[in-house]
Amino acid sequence: GHYRIRINGREFEIRGISEEEIRHLEEALRNGADEKILKEIVDRLRG
């Protein structure tokens, strides 16, 4: 998958993330885990 997200007015492209991972992120966001989720995304993109 290849997705664009906007955070604090800046747009980011996220590549190589699966539909299942996105559902997991959405679930966590609904549970209020904003900073933790951003850290997970950044860590994943770093490799």
Rank of each mutant, 00 (worst) to 15 (best):
G1N: 08
G1F: 13
G1E: 10
H2N: 13
Y3A: 02
Y3G: 01
R4N: 07
R4I: 15
R4F: 15
R4Q: 08
R4G: 02
I5Q: 00
I5T: 01
I5K: 00
I5P: 01
I5D: 07
I5W: 02
R6S: 07
R6A: 11
R6H: 14
R6M: 15
I7N: 00
I7L: 06
N8S: 04
G9R: 01
G9K: 02
G9V: 01
R10E: 15
R10F: 14
E11M: 09
E11R: 01
E11V: 15
F12N: 00
F12M: 03
E13F: 13
E13M: 09
I14H: 00
I14C: 07
G16S: 07
G16W: 08
I17G: 05
I17S: 03
S18H: 05
S18P: 04
S18N: 03
E19V: 12
E20C: 14
E20N: 10
E21L: 04
I22Y: 04
I22T: 04
R23F: 11
R23N: 11
R23I: 12
R23G: 13
R23P: 03
H24W: 14
L25R: 00
L25S: 00
E26R: 04
E27P: 01
A28P: 00
A28F: 10
A28R: 06
L29Q: 07
L29C: 04
L29A: 04
R30K: 06
R30G: 08
G32L: 08
G32P: 03
G32F: 08
G32W: 04
D34R: 03
D34V: 13
D34P: 09
D34F: 11
D34I: 10
E35W: 14
E35N: 06
E35C: 07
E35Q: 07
K36N: 13
L38R: 02
L38K: 02
L38D: 00
L38E: 01
L38Y: 04
K39D: 04
K39W: 14
I41W: 07
I41Q: 02
V42C: 06
V42R: 03
V42S: 03
D43I: 09
D43L: 05
D43S: 05
D43C: 13
R44Y: 13
L45N: 04
L45G: 02
L45V: 07
L45K: 01
R46F: 15
R46Y: 13
G47C: 06
G47H: 10
G47W: 04
G47I: 06
G47R: 03
